[in-house]
Measured scan of single mutants.
Amino acid sequence: KEFRPGDKVVLPPYGVGVVAGIAQRSVSGVSRAYYQVDFPGSRSKAYVPVEAPHSVGLRKAL
């Protein structure tokens, strides 16, 4: 896996977040693995496909 729990990442347009782990989510009846990204200071979460994280701009924070 490219990202691990605890990694600081950037996800446009949300900003800097932390990978909380990998979650299985069902979309249109198909279960897939997603990185769960939490954003400190907020209750917001984002789910990014493990198979294509760069397709939505997910990258490691510098």
Rank of each mutant, 00 (worst) to 15 (best):
K1G: 14
K1V: 15
K1H: 14
K1E: 15
K1A: 14
K1N: 14
K1R: 13
K1M: 15
E2C: 13
E2H: 11
E2R: 09
E2M: 10
E2Y: 10
F3I: 05
F3H: 07
F3E: 00
F3C: 15
F3G: 01
R4I: 13
R4T: 08
R4V: 10
P5I: 14
P5E: 10
P5Y: 07
P5S: 07
P5K: 12
G6H: 02
G6V: 01
G6F: 03
G6E: 02
G6C: 05
G6A: 06
G6Y: 02
D7N: 03
D7Y: 03
D7M: 06
D7W: 10
D7T: 08
D7I: 03
D7K: 00
D7A: 04
D7C: 11
K8E: 08
K8V: 14
K8H: 12
K8C: 14
K8A: 11
V9A: 00
V9Q: 00
V9H: 01
V9N: 00
V9K: 00
V9Y: 05
V9D: 00
V9I: 05
V10I: 13
V10S: 06
V10T: 07
L11W: 06
L11M: 08
L11F: 07
L11N: 00
L11P: 03
L11V: 05
L11H: 03
L11E: 01
P12I: 05
P12T: 04
P12Y: 11
P12E: 09
P12C: 14
P12G: 04
P12D: 07
P12F: 09
P12S: 05
P12H: 09
P13Q: 06
P13F: 09
P13I: 06
P13S: 07
P13D: 05
P13V: 06
P13R: 08
P13A: 06
Y14S: 01
Y14E: 01
Y14F: 12
Y14G: 01
Y14I: 04
Y14T: 01
Y14H: 08
Y14K: 03
G15Y: 03
G15N: 01
G15R: 04
G15V: 00
G15D: 01
G15Q: 02
V16F: 13
V16K: 07
V16W: 10
V16S: 07
V16Y: 14
V16D: 07
G17I: 02
G17Y: 00
G17V: 02
G17L: 02
G17H: 04
G17F: 01
V18E: 04
V18H: 05
V18T: 08
V18W: 10
V18Y: 11
V18K: 05
V18S: 05
V18Q: 04
V19D: 01
V19A: 01
V19F: 04
V19W: 00
V19P: 01
V19R: 00
A20V: 14
A20P: 00
A20Y: 05
A20N: 08
A20C: 12
A20S: 12
A20E: 09
G21W: 01
G21D: 05
G21E: 05
G21A: 11
G21P: 00
G21T: 07
I22L: 05
I22A: 01
I22F: 04
I22M: 04
I22P: 01
I22T: 05
I22E: 02
I22R: 02
I22N: 01
I22S: 07
I22D: 01
A23G: 05
Q24P: 04
Q24C: 15
Q24S: 10
Q24M: 14
Q24V: 14
Q24R: 11
Q24L: 13
Q24N: 12
Q24H: 12
Q24A: 08
R25F: 12
R25K: 09
R25W: 09
R25V: 13
R25C: 15
R25P: 02
R25Y: 09
R25Q: 07
R25I: 15
R25E: 04
S26I: 14
S26D: 11
S26V: 15
S26C: 14
S26Y: 10
V27S: 07
V27T: 09
V27Y: 06
V27C: 12
V27R: 06
V27P: 04
S28C: 14
S28L: 10
S28T: 07
S28Q: 14
S28N: 14
S28H: 13
S28A: 13
S28M: 11
G29K: 03
G29P: 00
G29Y: 00
G29W: 00
G29V: 01
G29S: 03
G29N: 04
G29H: 03
V30F: 06
V30W: 03
V30C: 10
V30T: 09
V30Y: 04
V30G: 06
V30L: 10
S31H: 09
S31P: 08
S31F: 08
S31Y: 10
S31L: 13
S31A: 10
S31K: 12
S31T: 14
S31N: 12
S31Q: 11
R32W: 04
R32N: 09
R32T: 10
R32H: 10
R32E: 10
R32A: 15
R32K: 13
A33M: 13
A33P: 10
A33T: 10
A33E: 15
A33R: 11
A33Q: 13
A33S: 12
A33Y: 13
A33K: 11
Y34A: 01
Y34Q: 02
Y35I: 13
Y35D: 03
Y35V: 04
Y35T: 01
Y35C: 05
Y35S: 00
Q36Y: 07
Q36H: 05
Q36I: 15
Q36G: 01
V37L: 06
V37I: 15
V37A: 00
V37Y: 00
V37S: 01
V37N: 01
V37K: 00
D38C: 15
D38G: 04
D38V: 14
D38L: 12
D38A: 11
F39H: 00
F39Y: 02
F39S: 00
F39R: 00
F39N: 00
F39T: 00
F39P: 00
F39V: 02
F39M: 03
P40R: 05
P40L: 10
P40N: 07
P40D: 08
P40V: 09
G41F: 10
G41Q: 11
G41T: 10
G41H: 13
S42N: 10
S42E: 08
S42P: 07
S42C: 15
R43I: 12
R43F: 12
R43Q: 13
R43K: 12
R43N: 14
R43L: 13
R43E: 12
R43V: 13
S44F: 15
S44D: 12
S44K: 13
S44G: 13
S44N: 12
S44L: 15
S44T: 15
S44E: 13
S44H: 14
K45R: 13
K45M: 11
K45H: 12
K45W: 06
K45C: 15
A46Y: 08
Y47H: 03
Y47W: 11
Y47A: 02
Y47K: 01
Y47R: 00
V48C: 05
V48M: 03
V48R: 00
V48P: 00
V48W: 03
V48D: 02
V48K: 00
P49R: 03
P49Y: 04
P49H: 03
V50M: 05
V50D: 00
V50H: 02
V50Q: 03
V50A: 04
V50W: 04
V50P: 00
E51V: 07
E51A: 08
E51N: 09
E51Q: 07
E51K: 05
A52C: 15
A52S: 11
A52K: 08
P53V: 13
P53A: 15
P53F: 06
P53C: 11
P53H: 07
P53K: 04
P53D: 06
H54R: 06
H54P: 05
H54Q: 10
H54L: 08
H54N: 09
H54G: 12
S55I: 11
S55L: 13
S55W: 07
S55N: 09
S55A: 10
S55Y: 08
S55M: 11
V56A: 14
V56R: 10
V56F: 05
V56S: 14
V56P: 05
G57P: 03
G57V: 04
G57D: 06
L58E: 11
L58H: 03
L58F: 03
L58K: 03
L58T: 04
L58S: 03
L58Q: 03
R59L: 07
R59P: 03
R59E: 12
R59A: 07
R59M: 05
R59Q: 09
R59S: 08
K60E: 12
K60T: 07
K60I: 09
K60H: 15
K60F: 07
A61S: 08
A61C: 15
A61L: 15
A61N: 06
A61Q: 08
A61I: 15
A61R: 06
A61M: 11
A61F: 14
L62H: 13
L62W: 05
L62E: 15
L62N: 14
L62Q: 13
L62D: 15
L62C: 15
L62A: 14
L62F: 08
